[in-house]
């Protein structure tokens, strides 16, 4: 068989492999949902649609701002009715566009100057946002050439070096965020976030809130434990741990709860007796649960960066919030 014949044969064999219309429809829907910032972005949840269990931590960034309203607020300046909406949608959009906050502030400054007004707080906000983006960001030019800024600096304003930028922005009074979290059993919890803090959590039947602090909380059901963690940019990170079946193995229940520890106790099982445990366990489900829990935890590393999966594979580009 020469090279060309080999190619022909491989090609012909591959042509039998066709992606189904059903999958294409699902994918296009997921893509468009991810593109419209007003929508839930269930990145890893979408990926595991065909899995029996939730296998990875869910990055659930959800907002209630309808896309149309977000667009209408695009040109709002401080004092406008829609300005709060604009700030709210920024928190999500910044996930896709790291420059958006600085750009908005600079544009607002320019818009206000055009109408003969100034808003000193905007300059601080703009500088803070730009400091996050780096000293050589092109937007600095637009900001520093503004006469109002020069006047500001003449007045002896100290350098805008502020390492507590995030807590500052969280003080901006905005409407409470209502975040919807998809739970691994298909139900939803609602988390109300106000000023960067979790203020209230509504859980469906069968779920309890076992711990709640300002920016993290733990939800528990009979089969799962979900730890949620509110990120400064307003996204919600959830980590799902499947519990071992309580009836089967009480000790696993105890041990299984500590999230990042679950990998350790599991490890010997995996390596030494991993092949036997599924058969030994009369209930396939419960063993699956344990395994999946461990997996959810171990995939966390890749989730953190990009959801991409490989050693050399963290797609650099995908985490705008990381690189400021």
């Amino acid at each position: 068989m020469n090279d060309e014949q080999l190619t022909q044969r491989l090609k012909a064999a591959s042509e039998a492999i066709e992606i189904s219309d059903d999958a294409q429809g699902r994918h296009l829907e997921a893509i468009s949902a991810a593109l419209s910032a007003g929508d839930v972005i269930p990145l890893s949840a979408a990926r595991s649609t065909r899995r029996r269990q939730v296998i990875a931590s869910i990055v659930a960034a959800a907002v209630i701002v309808p896309a149309g309203l977000a667009a209408a607020s695009e040109d709002a300046v401080p004092g406008d009715t829609l300005y709060g909406i604009k700030q709210l949608s920024e928190r999500v959009l910044v996930l896709f566009d790291s420059d958006i906050i600085a750009r908005h502030r600079v544009e607002e400054i320019e818009a206000l100057e055009d109408s003969g007004r100034t808003e000193p707080a905007l300059y601080d906000d703009a500088r803070e946002a730009l400091t996050e983006l780096g000293e050589d960001h092109p937007l600095w030019e637009r900001l520093s050439t503004s006469p109002a800024t020069l006047a500001d600096e003449d007045a002896g304003e100290p350098d805008p070096v502020d390492d507590d930028y995030r807590s500052d922005t969280e003080e901006v009074p905005i409407a409470p965020l209502r975040l919807v979290l998809d739970l691994p059993d298909g139900t939803e919890a609602t988390i109300i976030v106000e000023a960067g803090r979790i203020v209230d959590i509504t859980t469906p039947a069968g779920w309890d809130v076992s711990e709640k602090e300002d920016n993290e909380a733990t939800l528990e059901s009979r089969s799962y434990e979900v730890e949620i963690d509110l990120q400064p940019e307003g996204a919600l990170r959830a980590e799902v741990t499947a519990r071992a079946d309580t009836d089967d193995d009480p000790s696993a229940d105890d041990g299984g709860l500590a999230d990042s520890d679950i990998d350790e106790p599991d490890e010997p099982d995996d390596d030494e007796t991993g092949s036997t445990s599924p058969e030994d366990d009369p209930e396939g489900d419960s063993s699956d649960d344990t395994e999946d829990g461990a997996e959810a935890d171990s995939s966390e590393d890749s989730e953190d960066d990009s959801d991409s999966t490989d050693d050399d594979g963290d797609s650099s580009g995908d985490d705008p919030e990381d690189d400021s």
């Binding site: 992606i19 893509i31 991810a34 979408a46 990926r47 649609t49 566009d97 990009s306 959801d307 995908d318």
Partner: peptide
């Protein structure tokens, strides 16, 4: 594995949605 392959494809596009400002 058909399902896993489909997931991989979807995942790549969702990654692209997130990565696009950097491309």
């Amino acid at each position: 594995d058909k399902g896993a392959a489909e997931d991989a494809v979807q995942h790549a596009y969702l990654e692209l949605v997130r990565a696009r400002p950097k491309l």
